[in-house]
């Protein structure tokens, strides 16, 4: 699989809520080879502190072959990235990893929590463009309306049904996004794709495995290289005593391949 290391100019910087940012990067080679669910490694600042690149799932590929990432400024690296201005450039490596596999059913449910919503945009667009007749439902969760409102409305604009949940009840269901899975009813023909905080993905995976629904999860871990060289991004594998590597065999895994606690 070809990956590229490119100096990408930031062509657009959007604020989507408190500390939530979307950057649009001019990296046409990466854009043209990207598959939904794959990620890029971004050097947030030149120099050695912070030293390592940060992994970001590819949020969207624009119609003019630009790469978008979505993130919350939480740590040192993401705060620096949030301060990058339009016209500045970033060193980006990608596309990396293995993305989402196509659904086996005609009903698709996307479950996103917090910044885990990011890769579901690229995946939803891809599914909609595929021309296959299917019903796509997005269940999106976050802590507050402030965090979720603009992402939920952007997702609805893609042309799919969106249901929201917030921890404080300020938008949609007052509670966990996982609660909304009950709305799918007994219909087993849903393929579920989840990305979000680990407990959320665990709950989604557990429900899907119990009801026989195919489920793919996009995992996030601490990662030094993203290239399967450092082997730092290990997660326990269901098969045997070994580990899966989020950067290489993932970040997207079938829920049943992961050893959940």
């Amino acid at each position: 699989m070809a990956a590229y290391q490119k100096t990408a100019t930031v062509s657009r910087r959007e604020t989507l809520g408190e500390d939530i940012f979307r950057l649009t990067l001019q990296a046409p080679e990466i854009a043209r080879h990207a598959q939904p669910g794959q990620f890029v490694m971004v050097k947030t600042v030149a120099g050695s502190d912070p030293l390592l690149r940060r992994p970001f799932s590819i949020h969207q590929i624009t119609d003019d072959d630009q790469v978008q990432i979505l993130f919350k400024a939480l740590g040192k690296g993401t705060r620096l990235l949030a301060g990058v201005a339009v016209g500045q450039s970033l060193d980006v490596v990608g596309p990396l990893g293995r993305g989402f596999s196509p659904p086996a059913t005609s009903h698709v449910c996307l479950v996103g929590g917090g910044m885990g919503i990011a890769p579901l945009f690229f995946w939803a667009s891809h599914l909609l463009r595929s021309g296959r007749p299917m019903e796509i439902l997005a269940l999106l969760g976050a802590r507050t309306r402030e965090e979720l409102a603009s992402l939920a409305s952007d997702m609805a604009q893609l042309g799919l049904s969106v249901r929201s949940a917030t921890d404080d009840g300020s938008l949609g269901h007052h509670g966990l996004v996982v609660d909304l899975l009950a709305d799918l009813g007994p219909e087993p023909g849903w393929s579920v794709y989840a990305c979000g905080p680990y407990p959320m993905m665990h709950a989604v995976a557990r429900q899907c495995m119990a009801s026989g629904r195919p489920c793919q999860v996009s995992l996030e871990t601490m990662m030094a290289c993203g290239l399967a060289a450092c082997l730092g991004c290990a997660v326990p594998s269901k098969a045997g005593a070994g580990y899966l590597h989020v950067c290489k065999e993932g970040p997207v895994f079938a829920a049943e391949d992961v050893a959940w606690p």
């Binding site: 912070p50 030293l51 601490m222 990662m223 450092c230 082997l231 730092g232 290990a234 070994g242 580990y243």
Partner: peptide
């Protein structure tokens, strides 16, 4: 060798 349990790296 399977290696150590995660987390395996820290910045």
């Amino acid at each position: 060798r399977a290696g150590n349990p995660p987390p395996r790296v820290a910045e």
